[in-house]
């Protein structure tokens, strides 16, 4: 049985059209004009219990809209959604107690009060037994290294510290499904790294089902095994991260620094750069072993490296070309 099932999901928004100028403003008062924005078109996928899935796409692709529908705060125009057997927008308490949604752009803690006060309020709302709450809080505070910060007013904390406390607030009631929307947005590199590691460990140990939208590919690479690519409201790819690279980045970049300039460079793939004794080729993946063998047996080599394209580059290539990304059937559905 799936933890999350989405079938033929559609969502459109109506956005007011506001032209500049006083006349246009007056006209809008009398006869407002709107444009329809299609946020999601026939989106379908399933996620198994305990699976961690990255949800990727450019701005406006429909990622956050999907998450909000799955979390039950937006109504779809059409389609079926089930999360843990619940229809999210029916807003049942039993559903809310089993899922959590964390947004990097927004926080639910009160600015002037310590997080601990709010944690106690949430404990009462979610009706978590006191002993369970204490155990979870101690565990999460220790993991996230924020035990000393629980009694500090939120306004006095750094962005990274606040994010850790927001995550704890979302996890205290023991959700089975976690939706994350840009959880490391705006954090410095160290804080991103730390939160990524903490999330990865927690999600795996607790067996959480995770759907995470992020622009930081390192977040996705670190935490998720599977990715869904969304573009203009449609799924363009759904499958393992490794398959994404294989399919959309069939080349590797081979860089070699010769001990002495060779009389002729080996023929392989495309030579994309040359600076003195340093050569760079883009080579079809299956040709890489032959090239490496040739380089190491026929030439005197100082340095040699083979690089996979970064996920960012793969995605840029996908989203900037109109080539159909041929979404395969979703695993498990």
């Amino acid at each position: 049985m799936s933890a999350i099932t989405v079938r033929h999901l559609h969502k459109t928004y109506r956005a007011p059209l506001r032209e500049p100028g006083l006349r246009a403003s007056l006209r809008h008062l009398v006869a407002p004009r709107y444009r329809t924005v299609v946020a999601l078109r026939d989106v379908s996928f399933t996620i198994a219990p305990g699976e961690a899935v990255g949800y990727l796409g450019p701005n406006g692709a429909g990622k956050t809209t999907t998450l909000k529908i799955l979390a039950g705060v937006l109504y779809p125009d059409a389609g079926q959604v089930e999360v843990l057997g619940f229809v999210p927008w029916q807003g049942r308490s039993a559903f809310k107690k089993r899922m959590a949604f964390v947004m990097g752009r927004k926080g639910q803690l009160w600015w002037d009060l310590p997080a601990l006060d709010l944690f106690h309020l949430f404990r009462e709302m979610y009706q978590v037994p006191a002993a369970t709450f204490r155990r979870r809080l101690d565990d999460l505070a220790a993991r996230f290294r924020v035990t000393d910060l629980l009694t500090v007013p939120v306004r006095n904390l750094s962005l990274g510290e606040r994010m850790k406390l927001e995550l704890i607030a979302a996890l205290l009631h023991g959700p089975q499904v976690l939706f994350l929307d840009e959880p490391t947005l705006g954090l410095d590199v160290m804080a991103q790294h730390e939160i990524r590691d903490l999330l990865r460990a927690y999600v795996r140990e607790e067996g959480l089902t995770l759907l995470m939208a992020s622009h930081y590919m390192r977040d996705v690479e670190a935490i998720c095994e599977r990715v869904i690519l969304l573009d203009e409201g449609r799924i363009r790819f759904d499958g393992p991260l490794t398959e994404l690279k294989t399919r959309f980045a069939p080349h590797r970049e081979v860089t070699v620094t010769f001990a002495a300039p060779p009389p002729s460079a080996p023929a392989a793939g495309w030579l994309v750069g040359r600076e003195g004794p340093r050569f760079r080729w883009r080579v079809p993946r299956q040709e890489v072993p032959r090239l490496l063998q040739e380089l190491t047996t026929r030439y005197e080599v100082d340095d040699l490296s083979v690089q996979e394209p970064a996920l960012e580059d793969v995605l840029r290539q996908i989203f900037t070309t109109d080539a159909p990304a041929s979404a395969p059937p979703a695993p498990g559905g």
């Binding site: 705060v73 927004k106 639910q108």
Partner: peptide, 12 residues
């Protein structure tokens, strides 16, 4: 501003 979302997420 959309912060209503937090209240809709909670059993509140």
């Amino acid at each position: 501003e959309g912060d209503l979302i937090f209240h809709l997420l909670r059993p509140e």
